[in-house]
Amino acid sequence: MNARQLVVLLVSTLAAVPAVAQEWTATEKVDHYKVNGTSPMELYQSIGERGPKLGGGRVIAHTSFKLTWQRDYQQQGAACVLASAKPKLVITYTLPKPTQKLPADVAVKWSKFYDGIVTHEKLHGQFMRDLTQQIQDISVGLRDENDPGCKKVRAALQAQLKPISDAHVARHSEYDQVEMSPGGAVHQLILAFLNP
């Protein structure tokens, strides 16, 4: 085999290798909202007045995200392939922060309460990472053999995103329902914080 044949073989072998998902990292941000008070009850009441709005009321904390994509659709003759899909995921945690110096005993209770809330919200953040990875996994390598203009591949991708998104919303909702129901982790955090 001469050098030219070897190059042709290598190029055709590389073309046959399935697309590989790119590495990516989420960016995390924390936004604090201010709560007033020096006792657990005052702080908790302030959370109820100032916490992030969600649905019809306010919550202790909230995790939101912004997800954008750089997608590389490549025309290969009549075929189209989604060769790469690189996400940019920004996760924002909105958490309470006391405005006043707390008495030592309240500060200890606040620290445990706050850490527990952060743990809860970080799992929401992990769900968002899972969603992003799932979208990348189904995106990269998506192909249609007769797709000039890459319209079919784009439509196929959009068709797969809705059920993934619906499952993602349900996962968050079920998690919160378990955590906040009587005996759930967040419910226990609140009780431990408020009770003497």
Rank of each mutant, 00 (worst) to 15 (best):
P87Y: 00
V106A: 06
T92Y: 04
T38E: 08
N36Y: 15
G48L: 11
P96D: 02
Q136E: 02
Q160K: 15
E28R: 14
L10M: 14
V7F: 13
Y33I: 12
L6A: 13
H124F: 00
E121A: 09
I138C: 02
V186G: 00
G48Q: 10
L161N: 12
I91T: 11
Y44T: 02
S39Q: 09
N146A: 15
D166T: 13
P52K: 06
D147K: 00
Q100I: 08
L157H: 01
H172G: 06
A79M: 02
Q5C: 12
I164G: 00
V7Y: 08
W24D: 01
R129G: 08
V118H: 03
G184Q: 05
R71H: 06
A167C: 00
K97Q: 06
G55Y: 10
D147L: 04
V59A: 01
C80M: 09
R171M: 12
L123E: 13
S181M: 09
R143T: 15
F65H: 14
E145T: 14
A156L: 15
H168V: 08
E28N: 13
S181D: 10
F113Y: 09
H124Q: 03
K112F: 11
Q133I: 08
P182F: 04
N195K: 15
H62S: 15
K34L: 11
L102R: 02
A155L: 10
L157C: 07
A107W: 10
L102Q: 05
P163E: 00
A83M: 12
A15I: 06
G125D: 06
L82K: 07
M180K: 13
G141H: 03
A26H: 03
D31L: 15
V11W: 09
K151T: 08
S173K: 14
H168D: 14
K162Q: 14
V90L: 14
K122V: 08
I190S: 05
H124A: 04
G125P: 03
S39H: 05
I117K: 01
G149R: 07
G37M: 02
Q177E: 14
V17A: 11
Q134C: 05
V186A: 03
V118Y: 03
R143C: 02
P148W: 01
M180C: 15
R58I: 06
V8M: 15
D137F: 06
H124L: 02
R71A: 05
R129A: 10
G141D: 00
A21S: 05
T92S: 08
P103E: 05
H124R: 00
G37V: 03
C80E: 05
Y44R: 14
A78N: 09
L131W: 07
V81R: 13
N2F: 06
P148I: 04
V118S: 07
S165T: 12
H187I: 08
A170R: 03
A159H: 10
Q136V: 10
K112W: 06
P52H: 07
T38K: 14
R50P: 08
V30W: 07
D115A: 11
L82V: 04
E145R: 15
M1W: 11
H168A: 13
V186I: 11
K151P: 01
V108C: 01
Y44V: 04
R154W: 03
R50A: 14
A104W: 01
A192E: 02
P196V: 03
Q45P: 00
S84N: 11
E42A: 12
I60Q: 01
D147H: 14
L123R: 07
P148V: 03
K66I: 09
